[in-house]
Write a protein that binds this DNA or RNA. Structure first.
Length: 650
RNA sequence: GCCAGCGUAGCUUCAAUCGGCAGAGCACCGCAUUCGUAAUGCGGGGGUUAAGGGUUCGACUCCCUUCGCUGGCUCCA
């Protein structure tokens, strides 16, 4: 006798073996048809999964309205795609085919290299399979039998996976659909017909089991939705993201330049980008000063020995520019991080516990030799400016300092309209012995970090055990932009390593008149100015709030007859501290407006005879259009207020 | 670094039939126009087709090498 408890509290009793599909059929034929999968006691299963014969289970039937179904359906898409690829090409070895955010992929090994030109025929084959609407049939085999089957099928990667990854499983499941059989945990939708709208997106290389020393496979990415409209929306979203691409906007709006003759991954900030960056720097420095940080400036190179002491050289030699060797044998390294210089500042005089916390801040330029395939616009570069600071404090001060970092991050992000951010807290794996520092210090620090995060009521705090650095726990910031994309920004990291006697041997004199080792906190909540700026370009789609806009206003004269008045207006605005230019070309106003609009200039001041007579300007807002005439001082005041408030424009 | 794709004027706007004269639009420059809220008209300059090598009577086109870019993978103090 089995009791099946449904989400609405109804209970169905069964004295025979049933599957979710049978339960659905008992409730109604329409539901039976719509059911794609089920959740039994919290576990997602296929519709043909046999429920136990005895006892009590909770059952939730999933239709395409349930969020879990999408994932299950996409997993089925991966199978259908694999089946199509196997039909079209010879010698296909299957690897893994999971779902990912927005879609799915499958990794294959095969002779033919798949390119996008193969997509139409693969998609056509997929469409055929969907139309045939064959069932996904679950079959379970003992481990040994499964190996035998995969060997028969010639699926050596699956054999390897069975022998290595699944060696502890006595029974493994396969899914069969027509001629296609694949080792798979499932669940799947009942049949291929449940798949709605599917599209292949890209093909890329991927290593077997994610290990670069293994053979490289071909990974085919796709996306799938229940409705064509959802697919179209998703594709539109990808288009929208493309429209905001900071690499394209950066060129169009003349913000920055990457010039191969200078070097890959090296940013040249053009005047407009530099103007924006200076505004950001001023803003960030202002906040740092308010929060008790002291700015310093240090050089971008240092002796190799310094980085040997820190332990970063030669450990990271592969991702550094090689040392510069001088005639006298001295070797210098382009600094890959700022901390050693800041440590030397800490050590420049004896420190007392009364000096702590000592917060040293620098927008420090560092260079790292990132792999060529990793470079990407401003977001992954070889020279970047960290919004870096190092806090030297006592163990007791860690919680307060971390609180300060969170608070500042929240404030700065909010000012930029990035209201949502989450924190990933990386803690140590207690079972591992790779960590430096005393266990009790770690425990205290990790507890403190967790408590502070809870205090901030962060919506989805992720605590990741085993993700700490070997030298200390860390918290990474991930912000969500206005179209919902997440950007990994900066980090706060505790460090028990660099202050230790094995490294720089940092000390302060405590209240007990004895030397103690301070805790060091590395923090760069926005990561790098390059990456942060790239993110802002995409977040605002190049249409910056007035305070950040490189050009805040442009004076447009209706005809060249009014150039003199126009120049007077321009000068007045400039003297009021605004970044302004004038358009005195012999063009029609319409053309000038169009150009200014395309350059995303927030305000246009149109001046002609009427304005000259009344000492006014006709103000045009980039978004709202013509605001009508106002006296010049009134217009100036409007802009100055907007700048002072760092108003976000819709 | 690895896999795949791509590289034509300042421009991620793009054309050039099978290997047969490198061509538009925008931008730029000049002239005319002096105009009221998203493109005035006419004219002009601009190219070692990423670079180098090869095949060919002939290469933007086919092959090789290098550089760069794109999408992933790997890495990330």
């Amino acid at each position: 006798m089995l009791k099946v408890i449904l989400p609405d509290g109804n209970v169905l009793d069964y004295s025979r073996r049933v599957r979710p599909i049978d339960v659905a059929a008992d409730i109604g034929p329409r539901l039976a048809k719509a059911t794609l999968a089920a959740v039994v006691d919290g576990q997602t299963v296929g519709t043909d999964f046999y429920l136990p014969e005895e006892g009590e289970v909770s059952l939730r039937l999933l239709t395409k309205r349930d969020i879990e179904s999408l994932d299950i359906m996409r997993h089925s898409c991966a199978h259908v795609m694999a089946r199509a690829v196997m039909r079209l090409f010879e010698g296909v070895q299957l690897a893994f085919g999971p779902t990912v955010d927005g879609g799915f992929y499958y990794d294959f090994a095969l002779e033919h290299s798949i390119s996008e030109s193969d997509f139409p025929k693969i998609e056509a084959e997929i469409a055929k399979i969907i139309k045939q609407d064959e069932a996904f049939e679950r079959v379970e085999y003992p481990h040994a039998k499964a190996i035998e089957l995969c060997e028969e099928l010639g699926q050596t990667l699956k054999v390897e996976h069975l022998k290595e990854g699944l060696s502890d499983q006595s029974l493994v499941s396969f899914y069969r659909q027509g001629e296609f059989v694949d080792l798979c945990r499932g669940p799947h939708v009942p049949s291929a017909g449940a798949i709605g709208a599917l599209k292949l997106l890209s093909v890329a290389g991927a290593y077997w089991k994610g290990d670069a020393s293994n053979r490289q496979l071909q990974r085919l990415y796709g996306t799938a939705w229940f409705d064509k409209k959802d697919l179209d929306d998703y594709l539109a979203k990808l288009e929208e993201a493309k429209r905001r691409d900071h690499r394209v906007l950066g060129k169009q709006l003349e913000l920055f330049l990457i010039e191969p003759e200078v070097g890959s991954g090296l940013i040249l900030w053009l005047p407009k980008g530099a103007t924006m960056r200076r505004e950001l720097e001023t803003f960030i420095y202002g906040e740092l000063l308010k929060r008790g940080y002291q700015p310093v400036y240090t050089p971008t190179i240092g002796r190799v020995q310094l980085y040997e002491t820190s332990g970063h050289y030669p450990y990271y030699a592969d991702s550094q520019f090689p040392p510069i060797e001088m005639a006298d044998g001295d070797r210098y390294l382009l600094r890959p991080m700022n901390c050693p210089h800041h440590i030397k500042i800490y050590q420049s005089k004896p420190r007392s516990y009364r000096d702590l916390p000592l917060r040293i801040a620098e927008l420090g330029l560092v260079h790292r030799f990132e792999q060529s395939g990793e470079l990407n616009g401003m977001t992954r570069v070889r020279g970047f400016t960290q919004d870096d600071a190092h806090i030297f404090c006592t163990e007791d001060q860690v919680a307060d300092e971390f609180r300060g970092c969170l608070d500042m991050t929240q404030y700065v992000l909010k000012t930029l309209g990035l209201d949502e951010y989450r924190v990933r807290l990386g803690l140590r794996d207690p079972a591992s012995d790779k960590y430096v520092g005393r266990a009790e210090d770690w425990d205290r620090a990790e507890t403190a970090l967790k408590e502070v995060c809870q205090e901030f009521d962060l919506p989805d705090l992720e605590v990741e055990t085993g993700e700490a650095a070997f030298y200390g726990p860390k918290a990474d910031f991930v912000a969500k932009d206005c179209i919902g994309r997440e950007w990994q920004l900066g980090t706060v990291q505790l460090d028990y390593n660099l202050p230790s006697p094995q490294r720089f041997n940092l000390e302060y004199i405590g209240a007990d008149n004895h030397p103690h080792q301070p805790v060091m906190i590395h923090r760069a909540p926005f990561g790098s100015l390059e990456r942060f700026t790239g993110m802002l370009i995409e977040h605002f789609a190049g249409a910056f709030p007035l305070w950040l806009a490189p050009e805040q206003a442009r004076v447009l004269v209706v005809s060249q007859k009014f150039e003199e008045y126009g120049r007077r207006v321009e000068q007045t605005l400039r003297e009021a501290g605004l970044r302004v230019s004038g358009d005195y070309r012999p063009e029609k106003v319409g053309a000038k407006i169009r150009d200014a609009q395309l350059e995303l200039i927030p305000y246009m001041f149109v001046v002609g005879g009427r304005e000259m007579e009344n000492e006014t300007v006709a103000v045009r807002d980039r978004r709202e259009g013509d605001l009508g005439s106002m006296a010049l001082p009134e217009a100036v005041e409007r802009l100055r207020t907007e700048i002072a408030n760092k108003t976000l424009r819709q």
